[in-house]
Amino acid sequence: MNHNNSQNNILKTENLVIGYASKKHQIVVASNIDLELHQGELVGLVGANGIGKSTLLRTLTKVQEPLNGSIFINDKSLAQISALELSKILSLVLTEPPASKNLTVLELVALGRQPYTNWIGSLAPEDISIIESALIQTNIQQLKNKKCFELSDGQLQKAMISRALAQDTSIIVLDEPTTHLDMYHKAYILKLLKTLAKETNKTILFSSHEIELAIQLCDRMIVMTDSQVISDDPCNLISQGIFNQLFPEDMIAFDDKTGSFRVNK
């Protein structure tokens, strides 16, 4: 694979500093973040609780401002991209469910077309075919007339991913898409993301605590530790011993050979 080809670099950060600023002082969550994400990559963001994964995702998706440094999407500074413009480049799957559980799956997925529809939200034939293929890609056509409150957690997550697909963006960002799911559905969702990245050539960035699954499936991983934010191929990260720095080593150690964590007894 040709990861370093600068032509398909889609999201890039330079000297990014993230955190929270109030009037008097700044709280820096992480600094010196230099990332490069490419087209068609599945990227997993991992790190311990409270390390700043959500803050990083919020900053990359323009929900909050960076403290310093810059973010480029398609070589354009994120600060200069309007909300409506961004909605056609980047879609979100958040940890929160939709506010109204009275939406049917079809209505939910169709809302992904909002940036493209007219003042009253009428769907053109083209919109409908995009919605249909989004339902097919996530394998939820048979659920389309169900209401959100009738769905299981796994089904709802697929519907939310389908909605992001319908938004037809080159980047999809998911915040912990595998929480509340059982082993099977965790693997299912991550495999689905892998397939989508490959087939649609979208860049899919997700944060997760499923490090072992992410190592097996991701094209690239971003690892956040206390001292650094590093991004590379999972194999390179293993050989550099990065995963050992994730958690206190006297408690949990990473086994390079099996690619899994062991609790020290």
Binding site: A83, L86, S87, A99, S100, L111, Q114, W119, I120, G121
Partner: peptide, 24 residues
């Protein structure tokens, strides 16, 4: 109210999603 129909539909997802769909 009629002019707000699209915004109201977007708001059904919640404010964060609505923002990510480009709604002011």
């Amino acid at each position: 109210s009629i002019l707000s129909i699209k915004a109201l539909n977007t708001l059904l997802l919640g404010e964060n999603y609505a923002k990510s769909l480009g709604l002011n």
